[in-house]
């Protein structure tokens, strides 16, 4: 068995440390060791996107990374999306207003992917939103509410900049 290793990274603004077997998946470390259970697991092979986080500011699958690989990184999960005073991120707000979630299981991954999408493309067309969101599977909503929400959030984020 491989030696446990130390890992330390910044997550949602705070530095967290731990010791882990090298094979532990980043998503398991985030959920089980750090207790941040907002990031979900839906497939563990990179397709469903439920585990999507921002890794150094860019959306990535946390089920396809080892916790040890996050050493020194900066991570944002769904728990870090709202402002410290609890004000929802424009995407969260828009998801709420556009009924973009039902069971809410895909929602954290969907939000993180949408965050990244709007960062690289602040004014996406509907087609571009659909293409961008195809990175995350949702079985409840038929996606329409999500597409509408991302469009609305993009508008709001642009006008507040």
């Amino acid at each position: 068995m491989a030696e446990p290793r130390k890992v330390s990274f910044k997550i949602n603004g705070a530095v967290r440390e731990g010791t882990t077997e090298p094979r532990k998946l980043l998503v398991d470390f985030i959920r089980d060791d750090l207790g941040l259970t907002g990031t979900h697991i839906g497939c563990e092979h990179g397709i469903c996107g439920a585990c999507t986080i921002l890794f150094n500011g860019e959306a990535a699958r946390s089920c396809l990374m080892l916790a040890v690989q996050a050493d020194g990184a900066e991570i944002t999960t769904v728990e870090g999306l709202a402002a410290p005073d609890g004000t929802l991120h424009p995407l969260q707000q828009a998801f709420w207003e556009h009924h973009a979630l039902q069971c809410g299981f895909c929602t954290p991954g969907m939000l993180m992917a949408a965050c990244d999408l709007l960062r690289v493309n602040p004014s996406p067309t509907e087609e571009e939103i659909r293409t961008g969101l195809s990175a995350v599977l949702c079985r409840c909503t038929g996606y329409q509410g999500i597409v509408d929400a991302v469009k609305a959030a993009a508008d709001r984020m642009r006008s507040s900049n």
């Binding site: 999960t77 769904v78 728990e79 809410g104």
Partner: peptide, 21 residues
């Protein structure tokens, strides 16, 4: 009325409690 759901805020901030959590 198409009321916004009371379920949503928890789920949106990652505070949902699913069996694995």
């Amino acid at each position: 009325q198409p009321l916004k759901r009371t379920e949503d805020p928890r789920l949106l901030v990652g505070d949902g409690v699913f069996i694995a959590d």
